[in-house]
Every structure is written in structure tokens, then in C-alpha cells.
Amino acid sequence: MIPFVDLKAQYNSIKNEIDTAVFQALDSTQFVLGSEVVALEAEFSHYCGADYGIAVNTGTSALHLALLAAGINPGDEVITTPFTFVATVAAICYTGATPVFVDIDPISYTIDVRQIEAAITARTKAILPVHLYGQPADMGPILDIARRYGLIVIEDAAQAHRAEYKGQRVGSIGDLGCFSFYPGKNLGAYGEGGMVVTNNPEYAHKIEMLRDWGQKRKYHHVLKGYNYRMDGLQGAILRVKLRHLDQWTQARRAIAAEYDQLLAKADVITPKVMPYSHHVYHIYAVRSKSRDTLQQQLHEQEIQTGIHYPIPVHLQPAYADLGYQLGDFPHSEAASREVLSLPMFAELSTESQTQVAMAVISST
């Protein structure tokens, strides 16, 4: 079996470092927040090119608190894309605001910047672009629109650790950037985790309080907050893994380049890297008109695949109350029917990759 992702292979490659860090964290008994989390915040924010980092328990919590820090309230509108993991939209709804969808660009799979301005109303307060699959959204036009209309830009960088837009690391480009450390991410915890990065000290201070019951100091609750704190163990683990992220990213990009060559003769569309983008390939998604058949044939050859994502958010039953219908966002809907994610992880062997590619070619 060729796995879609192999977390055991990654762990084995850094086992001694991880085990040492975990035992030290256990010995410190700083199990919630603590010195390892503080150090991770400084190291990861610096890595992103941002002044502040605030660690939280999930990427969803990062989005939620970023929206709250930016002043998003019930009745406000936040523009985003329906072709994303549901957490992007859920976080907007947690604030009481309304998600307003804009279709994706069919080449990059990120928000179509040409359609954003038409979606702006008097209630629009923010734009929330998603750096999907590890490719940055086209941030230049987004920032230009935001400046002209006085809007906040919050980057969903959950899949884009170390990705760059025109040489600048994502997360530090908008007003706030949100990351997930879910285990399968390019930088993944051994459990859940997330981070908000920003250059705005007021946003950072507010998020620090909101993640810890709204406390300015212990038992002094300034805000109605949440229990969104990061575990000390995850801070220690992520600090180790951050030191390897550059190497892992280079490996992913090399694997993607090899896939591009191997699949040149296959009847699939391979990912397109936009000219402004340093893609980090959290997902390597091909497109096929016969996606479901292709996936089944790969499964029969013991090759695991994924679909990111089979139903766009505007067609999910949970979000039917937003009032969107089939056909409202044709590019998102087409992508949801056609994308198939192939095995992608830094330790993927050349032999396994070639086997995947030959199976795709023979099945299309």
C-alpha cells in the first residue's frame, strides 16, 4: 500500500529529537502554554516575517480569534471562497457574521480576485482569502481592494506554511494570518494546534486574552474569552519540526516537479503554479473528468488518494441557510467533481512516486 501521507516515516526521521523534546516538556510540567509555547510563538512568527505570534489549540480557533480581534461582529459580512475546508466558513459564522462567497479562479483554485469587488456591500468588513493546497492567493489585488474599501484582510494559511507571494511569506501579508498545525499539515503537531501571526500589537494582545478566557492576568477577565490554549507538549514538538520545514518543503517541491514530468502524458490536469507563487504542495491535486473512476482504479492498485474537497461549502447541508444554490459558483463546483489528491509527503520514495504515476497513466 502506498499511503496518502506517512506520518510514521516523518516521525522516524526525527525520532531522537522529538523524544528528547517531549521528555523535557514532561519534566517541566508546563502542560498548558508555558515556555515551549512562548518560544514557538517567537520562532514561528519570525519564520513568517511577522512581529507577533499567538499559539492556539486549532487552526479553526486561530481563524475565529483573528476575526474577533479584527472587530468582526454579528451583521457584518466577510468575503471568502466556497472551495475550502469548512472551518474557514465556520469561523466566520462563530462571530455571528455572514460569509459571502466568491468563486475560485479555475487555474489556481484560490479566490478569483476579479470577482471580489462586486461582492462588497455596506456590511462588508473583511476579506478572507484561502491559500489552498499550499499555493498563495493573489494577494496584491486583494490588498488593493481592501485599502480602497477600508477592509481587513485575514489570510487562511492553514495549508501554506512557508509559501510565498512575490517573495513574502504568507501570513505576514495581510492584517492577520492563520495557520493550522493539524498532524497532516506541512508543519503538523502530534495532536491539534494553530497560530495567528500579525504585525499589529493591538490584535496580538486581544488574541492573547481571548485564547485564555479573556484574562489580562489570572482571574482578571477583561473580555468574554475562550479556552483556546496550546498544549506545552505541542509547542515542544512543533519547535523541533519547524527546524526541518525548509528541508521538507524542498522535498515536496521536488516531488511535485517529478509528478509534473511523469504525468505529462496522462489524461489529467496537473497543478499550475502561478507566476507570483512559491507553492509548497500541501496537496498535489490533479483534475480528471473521470475522477471517481480514477480514484477507484488507484485504490484497486493499493494507492491511497484523497479528495479536497468533494462538496463546496455553499452546497453543504449545514450551510443551506446562506441561500446559495447549485450553479452559483461553477468553477468551485467543477473542481469539487474533478480534483483528486495524490500521495504527497516529503519521504515519498522515487519508486513509490513512479508507481503512482504509472497507475494514473494506465487508468486514464
Rank of each mutant, 00 (worst) to 15 (best):
A70P: 01
D27E: 13
Y309C: 14
A335G: 10
V153K: 05
K125M: 05
Y47F: 13
H282M: 11
S108Y: 06
I237E: 10
P141I: 03
N57R: 05
A254V: 05
E258T: 13
E36G: 05
S13T: 05
D328S: 10
A9W: 01
I154R: 13
M139R: 03
Y109N: 02
D103K: 03
C178M: 11
Q295R: 15
P129C: 13
T293G: 03
I92R: 11
Y309N: 05
F85L: 11
Q301L: 08
I92Y: 12
A204S: 08
Q215D: 04
F101K: 00
E258C: 09
V56D: 00
H278A: 03
V22H: 02
G194A: 12
Q296G: 09
V196T: 06
L132Y: 15
G193Q: 04
G71T: 10
Y259S: 08
D212C: 02
A320Q: 15
L26Y: 02
A236N: 08
Q301D: 12
S172M: 08
L348V: 01
M195N: 09
P3Y: 15
A318F: 08
S288A: 13
G134I: 01
Q261H: 10
Q168G: 01
M358Q: 15
L294N: 02
N186M: 05
S363L: 02
T350R: 14
D156L: 12
I104L: 07
F23M: 12
P312A: 06
H244M: 06
D76K: 11
H308T: 14
Q297E: 15
A50N: 04
L65T: 12
T270D: 11
C48L: 06
L223W: 09
A251W: 00
Y228C: 00
V113W: 11
L210N: 01
S180D: 12
Y319D: 04
E347H: 10
S61I: 03
K241T: 02
I104N: 00
Q250M: 13
E351T: 07
Y47D: 04
A163W: 04
T98L: 10
I142L: 14
F23K: 12
M195F: 04
D321C: 09
D246V: 15
A97P: 04
H161R: 02
N57P: 07
Q325S: 07
L67N: 14
P3F: 14
R291D: 09
T350W: 05
N12R: 12
G75A: 00
S277V: 02
A346G: 01
P99C: 08
D27M: 15
A25T: 02
Q301V: 10
Y284E: 09
T95P: 00
P312Q: 06
G134A: 05
L342V: 05
V37T: 04
F181R: 04
